[in-house]
Design a protein around this nucleic acid. Structure first.
Length: 573
RNA sequence: GCGCCAGUAGCUCAGUUGGAUAGAGCAACGGCCUUCUAAGCCGUGUGCCAGGGGUUCGAAUCCCUUCUGGCGCGCCA
């Protein structure tokens, strides 16, 4: 049930009927009806809905847009009663002014649907996978992961609310060189702890967390590992670290309100033979070839391995990519190909990856790889997040795994709180680089927009408590008569509430959860304004019931959206 | 060199997938609580939407181009 969509469709039908009629009566001449828009004008003075059909038709019909609009104005059937009037305005807009009756159904609809209000069925049960965070288990979760976590989790919730069947997945990079390097780093720390003069690997992980892990292993299992050979030590220590670090990541992500449906292990792809099987298939299909013991993926444009003078790649389409090295070890690219093939083999209609912008060079290759297995590359969508820069005391905080100096997600949650962290990250368009001012975020003041929204919710809860404490009996809000809500502030709030399903639909289709924050701010603002102009707990019983119901409906909408964002809706502040 | 992303008010950013007079928060100033939460409301002003071309009834939005910044272009992941 979507009031605004229903109204738009109805207006659209009436305009199409009028166009057809005008054509058959010879008043307008055109081949086909253009794809015109029925939209809500920014300026309320331009009516409730505006139609731009006349402008789009001008060339075909060889008439001035306003003249066309004037014809349509005569032809549009306004029977049915909800159209107050139609005007021709501006360059040829048809502005529809509606009677307000439809608005009074909105609060009732909100109360009937409750926690489901705003949900739509656009997704029609299609299966969507959202993969995000997927941080390397060699370190701690950092600001980039925090941004990805907020965006990915909210996006997953949003898509589910829009009717998709959603799975959230975390890809564990538990194979490859980095894990070996982690093992070497751990081994060095382990032996240091035992008083040996261990050589720390050149590119090793210097983070204090690695030392901690080595110490934990020693405390738990003793020093006997020292007697084993190096490969054994590395294997045991890296396995131990993986378990510990993954457990810790799950703990922190849980603090952050992020839970995954599936934790998918890269290593399992290798061990099950899926990586090699995918490579064999590429070779069979003629997309890959062997060269000196290694396997290469043929480039799209012939693949002569062309490079510019400075030795750098000319462009992605011209260069063959290595899949399996001469020593038989598959590259990360090979594993990722197998991983994405596996995703689609699992039957998802759409696969969404949330990646850092530093991986953007990988996107085109991955889409192509997917297409080589016969899947539609458009079904793979990669959301690239620009990087997060941390500032403290006005200076850039550099983050480096090598140096081991970075602010972790857990630090952030401790300092700014769970709600603010989630909201702050999802609020911004992923395309924009983000400067995160730690001092600003730490200062728990009203600068943070999440408080503004939460305050509206808490305020409404307080009003309802007040009503009860005054001895008012709260009616069934789904059955209240709202026709007494004639103040413009009340109309604005009902309209804003009616808009939620449209916002959900748009945000889900565009994969842009940050739109929800903009909507929340608008809704909260509209409510605050209403609150300051209309006394809710007034003496008039009918008006009071309607205003309480309207307020409560606003609280439901706020809570529903905050829940999608993984943010609490406090009942008092 | 090639590619991706960005450039909008003093600052941080939106901008409903091409609509009418470009918006919000912060910051500044002035009003509003002896009745529902002042973390709020109301009011005051600020823009060569980076520059230049083009597309059309209409462009911050689409195309081309220049400039600036970020990020990539590996038998790392």
């Amino acid at each position: 049930m979507r009031p605004i969509t229903d109204l738009k469709n109805d207006i659209r039908e009436r305009v199409i009927t009028a166009l057809t009629l005008a054509k058959s009566e010879g008043e307008l001449s055109f081949e086909e009806i253009p794809a015109f828009a029925v939209e809500i004008p920014r300026d309320p003075a331009h009516g409730d809905f505006a139609v731009n059909a006349a402008m789009l038709l001008a060339k075909q019909a060889r008439m001035a847009p306003r003249a066309i609009a004037a014809v349509l104005l005569e032809k549009i059937d306004t029977a049915g009663g909800y159209i107050e009037k139609i005007d021709v305005a501006g360059a040829g807009f048809l502005n529809f002014y509606l009677k307000q009756d439809w608005l009074f159904d909105v609060p009732r609809l909100v109360h009937r649907m409750g926690g489901r209000y705003g949900s739509v069925d656009t997704g029609a049960g299609k299966r969507v996978q959202v993969e995000f965070v997927s941080a390397n288990p060699t370190g701690l979760l950092h600001m980039g992961n925090a941004r990805g976590g907020a965006i990915g989790d909210s996006l997953g919730n949003l898509l589910a609310f829009a009717g998709y069947d959603v799975e959230k997945e975390y890809y564990i990079n538990d194979a490859g060189n980095q894990i070996r390097l982690l093992g070497l780093s751990l081994d060095a720390r382990f032996r240091e702890l035992l008083g040996e003069d261990a050589v720390f690997p050149e590119d090793g992980y210097h983070g204090g967390d690695v030392k901690e892990t080595a110490r934990h292993y020693l405390e738990e299992h003793g020093a006997s590992l020292r007697e084993k050979d190096e490969e054994e030590r590395i294997r045991v220590l890296s396995d131990y670290a993986l378990e510990e670090k993954l457990g810790d990541m799950k703990r922190v992500l849980s603090l952050y309100g992020v839970e995954f449906d599936v934790w998918f292990s890269e290593r399992s792809l290798h061990e099950s033979g899926k990586v090699m099987a995918a490579m064999a298939e590429l070779k069979e299909r003629g997309y890959a070839y062997e060269d000196g013991g290694s396997l290469l993926l043929k480039a799209e444009n012939g693949g002569d391995g062309k490079r510019s003078k400075d030795g750098q790649r000319v462009n992605l389409e011209d260069k063959d990519d290595v899949l399996i090295r001469a020593n038989g070890v598959p590259t990360y690219f090979a594993a990722d190909i197998a991983y994405h093939k596996d995703k689609f083999d699992r039957g998802f209609d759409k696969v969404i990856n949330v990646w850092g912008a530093d991986h953007h060079g990988h996107v085109a290759r991955m889409k192509r790889a997917v297409s080589l297995f016969g899947y539609d590359p458009d079904q793979l969508v990669v959301i690239l997040m620009q990087l997060v820069k941390l500032y403290q005391n006005g200076e850039l905080v550099t983050m480096s795994k090598r140096s081991g100096q970075y602010v972790t997600l857990e630090d952030l949650i401790d300092e700014v709180g769970y709600d603010a962290a989630r909201y702050f990250f999802v609020m911004r368009n992923p395309d924009s680089p983000m400067d995160f001012d730690l001092d600003l975020a730490k200062s728990k003041n009203a600068d943070n927009p999440v408080f503004y929204v939460q305050y509206a919710h808490a305020r409404i809860c307080s009003i309802l408590r007040q009503a009860v404490s005054l001895g008012y009996v709260l009616p069934d809000f789904a059955a209240v008569d709202y026709t007494c809500l004639t103040d413009p502030h009340e109309a604005d709030l009902m309209k804003k509430l009616a808009d939620l399903p449209e916002e959900i639909d748009a945000a889900a289709e565009l994969l842009e959860p940050h739109r929800l924050c903009a909507y929340l701010h608008d809704l909260a603002s509209t409510f605050h304004s209403f609150y300051n102009h209309c006394r809710v707990n007034c003496d008039d019983e009918a008006l009071r019931a309607a205003r309480l119901g309207l307020s409560r409906a606003a609280a439901i909408a706020i809570e529903n959206v905050l829940t999608l964002l993984g943010v609490h809706a406090p009942t008092e502040m």
